[in-house]
Amino acid sequence: MMLEARQIGVIRGGKVLLDNVSLTLLPGHVTALLGPNGAGKSTLLKVLTGDVTPTYGAVYLDGRPLEGWSLVDRARRRAVVPQESSLAFPFTAFEVVLLGRAPHVALRETPRDVAIAQQAMARTRVDHLAARAYPSLSGGERQRVQFSRALAQIWEALPDGSARWLLLDEPTASLDLAHQYKAMAVVRQLAKEGVGVVVVVHDLNLAAYVADEIVLLDRGRITAEGRPEDVLTAERIRAVFGLDVIVTPHPHHGRPCVVPLYANGE
């Protein structure tokens, strides 16, 4: 059981966005995709979700090419949290979360689906927003509701025992500090329950806190991958991000802690 990207290349308009990228993801692990702007993180995530068809290479889910899976079969085992999601129509937050149950619904939602949607909202602490109109929510609240929708989608283990996946594209971009870490704590719990998680993040410390594996991308290639303490070194961060930093073990949990010094050239 795994999610694999095999020798992925994405070329758009003559520009190489991803260059021969291979990646193997395991259930129960959190993998963070890191890299500077334009490194190809979001493109790689979109290739994994099937939104971007690679120019060459292919994505395999449990050994079968992604295109070989029906959309419903994909949706039952894999949820995606978008970077941002606007909605021109006034669904309530609860209705948005309940839509996450869509791949499991035959005709209409059962009381069980409703209960799952409620539990998913409680788990990401948005239950108090249930009756609010989605367009009236703040950016951060919307993101938490979308996260909750993805949780509802993959809430239960599948009857055939196959793995569940959660793919998040900068899920913390508009969250305040506390909510960033609370969301990542939920992500860690999910991994413990066997869900394979891929998350695009910008904050190196957040990545170090949440990830089992870090994949560092630079100009469309993977420059390093491995455990946070192996990947996040001061030399590598200077080379990839062009920023001088000090990396020290976090006094509490011992994972690397990145403290910026100043930008090059200042």
Binding site: T49, G50, D51, D73, R74, A75, P82, A88, G100, A102
Partner: peptide, 16 residues
Amino acid sequence: DALLLGEAEARHLGFD
């Protein structure tokens, strides 16, 4: 309903 969330979102929910 799913399409209101966005095209990619609807596809991720299993709709063609």
